[in-house]
Design a protein around this nucleic acid. Structure first.
Lengths: 147, 147
DNA sequence: TTAGATGCAAAGACTTTGCGCACTT
DNA sequence: AAGTGCGCAAAGTCTTTGCATCTAA
């Protein structure tokens, strides 16, 4: 598999290499992703892109994110019931979402190694380390005095 | 915490005990949940309920499921990008969702014990065993001849 | 030149909400 | 009798799609 693309140049090269066109909208989306380098909803990406390029429409953002996913530039995951979040493929990690305050945190995929092996052995199920999203209660939302 | 309600009587008692009314719609939803005893989308529940009580509307199903969640009778989880699934609280289990064929399977929560401890120790994060939904590739969608 | 990319607007899937009547208690 | 719960329909969110136009290569 190709190395993850985490720089602007790498992303645009990948687009170019796939015989896709490098447009202002795509470049701006790529810039936003590289600049923040953490998970963002389509809506957040749209806002950030529109700060620089006000005429880019949400539907274009979705189409670009879809293309970037096909090119393995980004992955998305669904946290809780809310909108999907997107982030660069290079940032391999799982997500923890707090059911109480809605906060999300990213944790290294290594935490899922054991579970991954277990599921593979038990069910032949191949866990996707990019999509892992665990719901629960974060430290802040747990009463200090033990529930 | 109260014992999980998995029989019709227990569910309706819980409703009654909460000073809520026991209606035809609620009884039918409860019957469907008990009869299938696995995860169902709101839409599936609506269809099953309407087979017996055609006049029950989807919005009522959502309201009942919300009430049942508050009463800890059911829990819901979000699998992939699709609709949320609901199941009885008693059926504690995680979900595996195949990104390719969309199939979902339920597995014992015990598989998450180690991960649960790890997350608690590392981040103080309390994993919700009812909500665990893992994305990946199921055995059937993996090429027999090793990818 | 020319085919892919975009903007706009409408549609679609899933879920929530407002309102007045019906039914449970 | 009293007030919760319901059906209906409309609204709300997030995402996708159709189509005419524009633009990167």
């Amino acid at each position: 598999m190709p190395a993850p693309q985490n720089t602007l140049d790498e992303i645009l090269s990948a687009v170019h290499g796939a015989a896709k066109r490098v447009t202002v909208a795509k470049r701006t989306v790529a810039e936003v992703l590289v600049a923040t380098n953490r998970h963002l909803t389509a809506d957040e990406i749209t806002s950030l892109v529109q700060e620089r390029e006000p005429d880019v429409s949400p539907s274009t953002i979705y189409r670009i994110l879809e293309e970037f996913e096909n090119l393995q530039i980004v992955v998305h995951a669904h946290l809780g019931q809310a909108a999907a979040v997107y982030h660069l493929t290079g940032a391999v990690h799982g997500h923890l979402t707090c059911e109480h305050c809605g906060a999300t945190m990213e944790i290294p995929a290594a935490h899922f190694d054991a579970l991954s092996k277990d599921l593979q052995k038990s069910y032949g199920f191949l866990l996707d380390r990019h999509h892992v999203a665990i719901s629960g209660t974060c430290a802040h939302c747990q009463p200090a005095t033990r529930a």
